[in-house]
Amino acid sequence: MELRHLEYFIAVAEERHFTRAAERMRVAQSGLSASIRTLERELGADLFIRSTRRVELTEAGRALLIEAHRTLASVDAARDAVAAVQGLLRGTVSVGTEQCLGVINLPPLLARFRRTYPGVEIRLRHGGSTHLADQVRLGRLDVAFVALPGQPPDGVTLMPLATEPMLLLCHPEHPLSARDTVDWESLRNELFVDFSSDWGARQLNDRAFTAVGLERRVPLEVNDVHTLLECVDQGLGVAVVPAPVARKPSARRLHVVTLSDPAAPRWQVSVAVPTAAPSSPARDALLRMVLPTPKPARPSVTATPGP
């Protein structure tokens, strides 16, 4: 089994199309197709269900995809480790983050990292915390900055960075704007604007309202912070958000209300890394800029299977 066969396989699996995969890998489609057939013969299983419009992974293909990502990540880590011994730091570090975490200002951090280690390519992906943690588990991200309530998925370790309160935002003319604090019962009949289900803040809110036995109506579900703030500003609903979101300049027109219930949720931002992944010099160098621990590759908080 050749590494390029695995690279071609991953490209087809992600593009769901042989032509697009070949363009992405900058090879002839015939050569890419031949490599996939060679891989299937070697494994003794069909990896794709082919149709005229797109291709889908078979059960064997789905199993291989996870291991293919891990294998290529291990190869990259091995190359980086040799380069580090030679006094070089090169390779790639793939970073994921949820929007507006506030606890960490990622662009300046990445700029400082690039200035310090110009031989390392930085890849950045945005997404919800659940999705990002899963990408870490699969080996597609080296590190992710997330806000996950509860335990991380199996195979992922969380290293806490900071904790922030959750706050209520409402329009200045909303009845709740006359108050500085509010309890859960006062929110029973409100319409909410919230993030999509894989965002950490949304999961935290859903758990909190369920814990106190309140049903919550969320007719407006968005996938970015600025749209959420605009919806609240237009009086379309209220929102329970992490404190960094409430501090954004675009939230200045809104009224901020403290949640007075002792059981009000708290928003924890953490660094997510693979639990059992081989050491990556580039990843460890990035973590040293973020964490105070001298050995970021061996965090003290270990993962357990999620619920």
Rank of each mutant, 00 (worst) to 15 (best):
P152D: 04
H69P: 07
T163C: 08
F18Q: 12
H226N: 07
E23I: 04
S270C: 07
P278Q: 10
Q99D: 03
D206S: 15
R54Y: 13
V146Q: 06
D261Q: 13
T210K: 12
A263S: 15
A78V: 04
I104V: 15
A13F: 11
L286I: 08
L259V: 07
E23N: 11
A45F: 07
L158P: 11
V143S: 05
S196L: 08
C100N: 10
D284Y: 06
T275C: 03
V212Q: 03
M289N: 06
Q135A: 11
P108R: 06
I122S: 00
V269T: 15
T163P: 00
L101C: 03
S51R: 14
R26T: 05
R24T: 10
A28G: 11
P149L: 09
A28D: 12
H255W: 09
I10H: 09
A22L: 05
G96R: 09
V27R: 12
A162H: 02
R137V: 03
S51E: 12
D198N: 15
R50W: 01
V193W: 06
G91L: 01
I49S: 11
A282C: 08
G235N: 07
I122W: 04
A45Y: 06
A77D: 14
L138A: 14
F9E: 06
R37W: 00
R253I: 03
S300A: 14
L176N: 07
A83C: 04
R140W: 07
V55H: 02
P118D: 03
F9Y: 14
R115N: 09
P242H: 01
R114E: 14
P107T: 04
P281I: 09
P274D: 04
V27E: 12
D233Q: 15
L39F: 07
E23D: 06
S30V: 15
A297S: 15
D80R: 14
L169M: 07
V257L: 03
V95L: 05
A28L: 08
L88S: 07
P305H: 12
W199P: 00
A13R: 09
R216T: 01
L191I: 04
T275L: 08
A83W: 06
V193A: 01
I122F: 05
